[in-house]
């Protein structure tokens, strides 16, 4: 059926939770583009048929015209599906910069197309240059702070980290009382958690 494969792409995207991302479906995308070329060929041949019968292309409403209309509509439908697929993925990828930071973990990277990776890098660079212009890190304090310091528990061996003016050894299971803004990137990456008594 026309347009079926293109909507499968979107179904795949819709089935995962908001903010999550599925692997880029290269095969399906290729097939949809091939389908588009097929529609285009059929459309051209039907139009040629009308012209060969020396009928006016603007006013003719015969079987060939309606066949051409259906192929044209299928093309625009496929286009909408493909655009929506790319656009919605791009939105999620943008949000990753704010949620995880400038470096993506391997398991997420694997799901992206190389152009999407490029997009992420460029978006990340744009955000960073804006932040350095403002001299303000906009990715911290996503939750309004009550106290500038926070008690954290380290979940994974992070090692020696330079915070402000002294180094801290962040070994697994250790507890620290550090600046909230320093802890925030580690928490969002899942390496620390807020420690509550």
């Amino acid at each position: 059926m026309y347009g079926r494969r293109a909507s499968q792409l979107l179904r795949e995207l819709a089935s995962c939770e908001a903010g999550q991302i599925t692997s880029f479906n290269d095969d399906n995308l290729e097939q949809v583009i091939r389908e588009c070329n097929e529609h285009n060929l059929q459309l051209q041949s039907l139009i040629r048929k009308i012209e060969d019968a020396s009928l006016d292309i603007q006013t003719t409403r015969n079987e060939d015209h309606y066949g051409a209309v259906i192929h044209h509509l299928s093309l625009t439908r496929n286009k909408r599906c493909l655009m929506a697929y790319i656009f919605n993925r791009a939105e999620v990828i943008q949000s990753l910069r704010w949620k995880i930071g400038p470096v993506l973990p391997q398991e997420i990277k694997e799901k992206l197309n190389y152009l999407e990776e490029e997009f992420f890098k460029n978006h990340s660079a744009a955000v960073e240059s804006y932040m350095s212009e403002l001299d303000l890190d906009m990715t911290v304090d996503m939750v309004p702070p009550k106290d500038p310091y926070i008690r954290v528990k380290v979940l994974d061996d992070i090692g020696e980290v330079f915070l402000n003016d002294h180094t801290v050894n962040l070994t697994q299971h250790s507890l620290h009382f550090i600046k909230r803004t320093d802890a925030e990137p580690f928490i969002s990456q899942g390496l620390m958690e807020e420690f509550l008594e």
Binding site: L10, Q42, L46, Y66, G67, V69, H71, M83, A84
Partner: peptide, 27 residues
């Protein structure tokens, strides 16, 4: 234009009767 739900909604099947003929779309 990019709304996924709107795109998928438009995929719902509707039963129609053709009032004209159409060539090249036997599929």
């Amino acid at each position: 234009y990019y709304n996924i739900d709107d795109v998928l909604m438009e995929d719902e099947p509707i039963s129609v009767v053709f009032q004209v003929g159409a060539n090249g779309v036997g599929l």
